[in-house]
Write a protein that binds this DNA or RNA. Structure first.
Length: 758
DNA sequence: TCCCTCCTTGTTTTT
DNA sequence: CAAGGAGGGA
């Protein structure tokens, strides 16, 4: 597999072979699409409604720019949000041109950001080989920081801190730009300080998190106009997919890069903006014309996907939103069926009815690949899975635990990371006691203390520590053995293909054996996954390449060869389409979700409505909406009301079907039901916001430096004190290691920073 | 150091 | 209800 992030170092010597690119055929496009393709110069916003051929416009436009010679491939920057989208873009443009395109900048925001950052890492205090941390690593780091400050993880949940920091990064805010007011009310007022320290730690670890990949770019651009100028001039044409999902940081990044040529083309649909909760700013797309003066706006409103009823139902629904640019989708298609709305008794019946319909369609010859169940929340898939298993209908759950997020894969990768980059403390900590080797928190604390005092990485500290008597003999031997293994594996890298090295590492470390001895039912699958990992490794040039790839590419596309119905969340369904779509769980509290209602106000309700719009517009020919009268939430049975979105669907496009199993539900609508619903939702989870004032924590009580000897010089004969061994006298000095004759403990080798002069 | 029990907490998720 | 984390006891 070619490395999808194989960007050229910019700008390279022109490729020797001028490629025989063919001009894309514009006659196949409709009027709007052609306008969007031909408006090459200047800022352009393409408002592409669902199913209006957005990708086609984007790819044809790219092909056009390249084929007419308006720009060389490396002068074109095309950014997407997912690797899948980037891959698709590459493939389709290559197909249009009839030849592969080399050295162009097509990738996700993060991949492109990483590429730029590696070239200028020094100016933000990183080395070019910095590690990219994922959210799991981040969390680990934040927990450490909380602990170091004696901050109660119950009052200040690490997850919350992580979220706050991430949101700040989304907005392009470095720690020095957090206003006092803002810092004060986040996470008991700790967040601002923690953010600063978190960044310091990352720098010390030579690591960047996902947010940093863009945030550091912004800093580089800000501090170094020459570098910025280089990229501004290089990128003659910039294309952005899914612009409605960009956050402030991404917007600033794009605006900075587009300053020289102003040829930026953003494609998006404000009605499909469903990621505000992770920092996306619909405002970016709503404001485009002000941000880029002289911008041309092209609307794509001819829908090639859905039947008129489906389209009208979706349009009628989304028309209730206030903050939108507004589009009127239309279609040439024949009428088709109305959107079917069905009430059922409970979740089980819902699953039963849906699966019956699936079976009926399947026996009529419809492929399962053409059907999908789209749910609001992940837990909803369970009932469908159970039912599908009973009926022996093949299914796939999309967006479950991803391959690279599985425990065993992350462990294996941590081993590789330590071998490739010994300073990777996060990875080291993850595997130092996996499998269990008796190097628990106590030994680790020792390492930490030393590493902090000496400003070194854990592995470096460990190398030093095993030379001394600081550790108990057993721990010392184990740690020494582990370090020897690291060295050994590192030396293998030069001599052996990296998949073999990996297998060796997994075997020799005892990691494989650990799972082989594990009697739980998952163990076998985990071993399978490890094999799969080794197999996947063969596709990469080197371990380094592989690690870069997986830190950025967390996707796992399954083979789509066999016929299976898809189960996924509405979020996961964006960008996909199916002949038949089932939309269960349209109930107040679940969809729109109670949490959105409680926390996000009217804006959040509009986002939920957009989510409903996305769901409906995934359907080509058939859409079924379901609502149950009773649903089990957190183990309790609740009576629930049909979603307001059901009421908002235009009557003429909806067939409100035989009222199945509404015996209790609708009848009780007048009073008791809604009251009970209200009580249940009011009572449960949404008090997480209640903030109690915490006593101020005395951070001085935590001491990082063990002794005071770190920067002291010791001379032979000097009296000293050591935390563990007590008083003694220096008998020899070897650099920062001392031989001490202890009064009680005999002669020991210890590290200077562990003793203090008395 | 490890294991067990108790308690809390429950969307959506890419990179 | 169910999972994950924290804290306590062996």
């Amino acid at each position: 597999m070619p490395d999808p992030f194989d960007f050229a170092d910019a700008p390279p010597p022109p490729p020797p072979q001028e490629q025989p690119a063919r001009l894309p055929d514009l006659d196949a496009l409709n009027e709007g699409q052609r306008q969007a393709v031909e408006a090459i110069d200047g800022p352009v916003l393409v408002l592409a409604g669902a199913g209006t051929g957005k990708t086609r416009v984007l790819t044809t436009r790219l092909a056009q720019i390249l084929a007419t010679g308006k720009a060389k491939p490396w002068q074109v920057l095309a950014v997407t949000f997912t690797n899948k989208a980037a891959r698709e873009m590459r493939e389709r443009v290559a197909a249009l041109l009839g030849c592969p395109v080399e050295r162009w900048w097509v990738g996700t925001f993060h991949a492109v950001g990483a590429r730029i950052l590696r070239a200028h890492a020094e100016s933000v205090g990183l080395k070019p080989n910095f590690t990219i941390l994922d959210s799991d690593d981040q969390l680990r780091l934040i927990k450490q920081l909380l602990k170091a400050h004696n901050i109660d993880a119950k009052k200040t949940p690490p997850r919350a801190v992580q979220g706050i920091i991430q949101r700040w990064k989304d907005r392009g805010l470095t720690p020095d730009r957090i206003s006092d007011a803002e810092g004060a009310d986040a996470a008991d007022g700790h967040a601002a300080a923690l953010y600063g320290e978190y960044q310091e730690r990352l720098k010390a670890l030579n690591a960047a998190d996902f947010g940093d990949l863009l945030l550091h770019c912004l800093t580089v651009f800000r501090n170094d106009p020459e570098v910025l100028g280089k990229y501004q001039n290089q990128f003659r044409y910039i294309l952005v997919d899914e612009y409605q999902d960009t956050n402030v940081g991404q917007y600033l990044w794009l605006r900075a890069l587009a300053q020289a040529h102003h040829n930026i083309c953003c494609v998006g649909d404000d009605d499909q903006s469903i990621y505000s909760w992770r920092g996306a700013e619909v405002g970016n797309i709503l404001r485009f014309e002000q941000d880029f003066p002289g911008a041309r706006v092209v609307r794509l409103e001819c829908n090639y996907r859905s039947t008129p009823h489906i389209l009208a139902a979706a349009s009628g629904l989304i028309a209730r939103n206030e903050s939108r640019l507004g589009k009127t989708l239309w279609t040439h298609m024949n009428e088709g069926e109305k959107v079917a709305v069905r009430g059922v008794w409970d979740g089980q019946e819902e699953a039963r009815v849906v699966c019956e319909e699936v079976e009926v369609l399947h026996t009529k010859g419809h492929s399962l690949n053409d059907m999908a169940v789209l749910v609001r929340a992940g837990f909803q898939t369970r009932e469908f899975e159970e039912r599908l298993i009973i009926l022996a209908i093949p299914y796939k759950v999309i967006g479950g635990a991803r391959f690279y997020e599985r425990q065993e894969i992350r462990d294996a990768i941590a081993y590789l990371r330590v071998v490739v980059q010994p300073d990777d403390d996060i990875a080291f900590e993850r595997i130092v006691n996996v499998p269990k080797r008796g190097l628990g928190p106590a030994s680790l604390r020792n390492l930490h203390v030393l590493a902090r005092a000496e400003g070194q990485s854990l592995v470096a500290a460990a190398e030093k520590l095993v030379e001394t008597d600081e550790l108990k003999p057993r721990a010392r031997r184990t740690l020494g053995g582990l370090l020897d293994q690291f060295r050994h594996w590192r030396s293998l890298l030069a001599a052996m293909p990296h998949p073999d090295v990996t297998r060796t590492i997994l075997d020799e470390s005892g990691y494989t054996a650990m799972w082989r001895n594990d009697k739980t039912p998952e163990a076998e699958g985990r071993l399978e996954n490890l094999k799969e990992l080794v197999r996947a490794l063969a596709d990469f040039e080197s371990l380094g390449d592989f690690l870069e790839h997986i830190s950025l590419v967390m996707d796992n596309d399954e083979a789509v060869t066999d016929d299976k119905i898809s189960l996924m969340t509405l979020h996961g369904a964006k960008g996909l389409e199916f002949e038949t779509v089932f939309l269960p769980g349209w109930e107040e509290g679940l969809f729109p979700h109670q949490r959105a209602l409680d926390e996000g106000g009217p804006a959040a309700l509009e986002e939920e409505r957009r989510l409903a719009y996305v769901g409906l517009t995934r359907a080509r020919r058939r859409a079924f909406v379901f609502h149950a009268a009773n649903r089990q939430v957190y183990g309790y049975w609740q009576s629930v009301l049909p979603s307001r979105f059901i009421t908002e669907l235009p009557d003429e496009n909806v067939e409100r079907g035989a009222p199945l199993g509404l015996h209790g539900a609708r009848a009780g609508r007048g009073g008791g039901v809604s009251e009970r619903t209200a009580t249940v939702f009011a009572g449960s989870a949404w008090q997480s916001h209640a903030r109690r004032s915490a006593p101020l924590i005395d951070t001085r009580s935590y001491q990082v430096t063990p002794g005071h000897g770190a920067d002291q010089a010791f001379a032979t004969g000097q009296r000293i004190f050591h935390q563990k061994f007590g008083y003694g006298r220096v008998v020899a000095v070897n650099g920062d290691k001392l031989d001490i004759q202890f009064d009680k403990a005999g002669t020991k080798k210890v590290i200077q920073s562990f003793v203090e002069a008395v």
